[in-house]
Design a binder for these strands. Structure first.
Lengths: 341, 341
DNA sequence: TCAAAATTTTAACGCGCGTAAAGTTTTTAT
DNA sequence: ATAAAAACTTTACGCGCGTTAAAATTTTGA
């Protein structure tokens, strides 16, 4: 097995001219079946692959796709990233995964580095409130970008996410119908725009049903939601600020902390007999099934958000990086009934 | 703000020759302070950055570093990856993050793609038992590689991980000292080599203490550990296979499932009064603090494993990609006492 | 069978930058 | 002040591949 240095050498060994070989690597179907067979035969014998740096330097458009999420240590984003990655690979692209780790500075640096990678497109779930809007705006001008999960008004060629009203309306309706209307438990200054939409949806829904909204805001910032939910819940429970016997958490990670606090305080959560509190939430976090009790929650339409995101990006790429107008696609939630409410 | 096309143009605008500018980008300190200042001044005015593809094509060694983990949706790996990433950036490298998503095929494809990136080095946490040993062996010949977390005998220039005996010995000793010696709860055919070492450590430790080891193996494969632990625990609890009142889980994710099953079965877990079962585990998973009850577990020396891994890789790179001999570095665990045991 | 169409070959340039050699200028040290 | 050292400029080549134009070849279809 000889070591091949470059395409020239490989072309010679396969008995095909270099430009034709180059054409083959660009699109195997663009050459005659017989020459294609000869190339692929040589390919098996010699194990050659084009130098990606030379390729990318000369191609106007690379086959790279950037996937940027705000916080990869959150299993929700890890799962979505996995799906996006594999869809890109299946479509013949080379995805690169980045996490802003909750920091604006990092998000900017990632976008910066991404620019010099000349990606065919980027799937971006921005940090949200703490994103550097102008930096993202500049980025989107230069790189075909589809936003997902977290919307930033007007930025990117399209947005695909979940319909927060659908989430909250279902949980509020369910809790009200089967018990009491819930209080809403959230962070005081949530970084994610979805959180704000959920609060508004809660208020709207409560008013529509003729109840007074009751919002509990807990302190804390950053992405340690479980910790924040836990501390906040302990405070709320100890100071008896809870006016209802049912609580809707803004998201599952807060709920995980909330449930841990309830457990520590000896408060029985659930809809079974002997339970004094019901807790529901939003997202259907991968661990929501294993909380104690298991968490009733409104689930993202995971697959659809992810698949529509990549589809939209591919359309965008094929369309030359621009759409006539920016579209926003929202998928409804699916209520998952478990034991906590 | 003019758009700069290439280094030639930028050099002209900054009043410095291209070779000197090139030298600057390779190492800013290699040029005279005055010229450095002029370049950086121009850099602010014109926003130019070298084409990374052209750079990497010509440099003998790129500044890329590959980080490969077996399963990124596991917050443990997500956290470690975060640390590794940031250490690489701090050292002036460009890390790329990859997850094998639990699949051998993907792991191989990642290593394949990584080869053509000509990385300066790679930090690899292999899948373990289901890794394609020969593929990884070939890879390690061509690319300076440091293994972490999961050891594959003889592969890579070095291994950095945790001392599984330290984990298990501490938990077993603690549980024995404060109650009964534990049974050991694990998957029947664990993919991760650490799991096997933990079982052996458990057996050795029990024998040393003069007790008979008692191992509970539950069915299941893949990376859905919580699910496997949950199902397995339900089966064990229903069929009353548990012979002891204390259980040591092979890892935290299994324990999360185990605790959920206990909760559902109404079994009070903990060391407080009224509890009938104690559960401990290994890893100190990011969520271990929020289980119900919070999980007593042996914690990885996270920071040291991560920092030593990158340090070792940097040494390896500076050493030309080869070490005299392969070293294995193991860090001991730190017992974290919480409520479950 | 033979011209038209499709494909491949040959030859050559360009991409943006690393790098080396030789000559020039600036800095450092005596 | 002056020689030596250090840094810079000029010039030029190479990296591996994309791409193009013209010439040569193969395939297609009637």
């Amino acid at each position: 097995m000889t070591k091949i240095k470059n395409m020239e050498e490989f072309a010679a060994l396969s008995g095909i001219s270099r430009p034709t070989v180059s054409k083959y690597f660009h699109d195997p179907d663009s050459v005659r079946p017989t020459t294609r067979a000869r190339i692929e035969e040589a390919l098996e014998r010699f194990d050659y692959r084009p130098n990606i740096y030379a390729v990318n330097q000369n191609r106007k458009l690379t086959k790279n796709i950037g996937i940027v999420v705000p916080y990869l240590a959150d299993p929700f984003f890890a799962e979505i990233a996995r799906y996006l990655e594999q869809s890109c690979i299946a479509a013949g692209y080379r995805p690169s995964l980045f996490s802003a780790h909750g920091e604006q500075k990092l998000e900017n640096e990632i976008l910066d580095g991404l620019q010099s990678m000349k990606p065919a497109g980027v799937l971006l779930a921005p940090l949200g409130r703490i994103s550097d809007r102008s930096a993202i705006e500049k980025f989107c001008v230069n790189v075909p970008t589809v936003l997902f999960d977290s919307n930033l008004d007007g930025l990117g060629a399209a947005f695909i996410g979940s319909d927060n009203f659908s989430f909250v309306s279902q949980t509020v309706e369910y809790m009200t119908r089967t018990g009491e209307p819930p209080s809403f438990f959230e962070m005081r200054t949530p970084a994610n725009p979805n959180a704000n939409k959920r609060r508004k949806a809660y208020v709207a829904m409560m008013e529509r049903l003729g109840f007074e909204p009751h919002i509990i805001k807990v302190d804390g910032k950053g992405w340690a939601f479980e910790e924040i939910g836990h501390r906040g819940a302990l405070k709320v429970l100890e100071e008896r600020e809870l006016k209802t016997n049912s609580v809707l958490c803004s998201n599952d990670r807060l709920a995980i902390g909330f449930l841990a606090a309830c457990y520590e305080q000896g408060i029985r959560v659930g809809r079974k007999e002997g339970c004094t509190l019901r807790v529901a939430s939003n997202d259907d976090h991968p661990f929501a099934k294993f909380t104690c009790p298991s968490l009733t929650t409104a689930a993202h339409d995971y697959d659809n958000v992810a698949s529509r995101s990549v589809e939209t990006l591919f359309e965008l790429i094929e369309n030359g990086g621009k759409f006539e107008s920016r579209t926003e696609t929202l998928f409804p939630a699916r209520l998952v009934l478990r034991d906590s409410a």
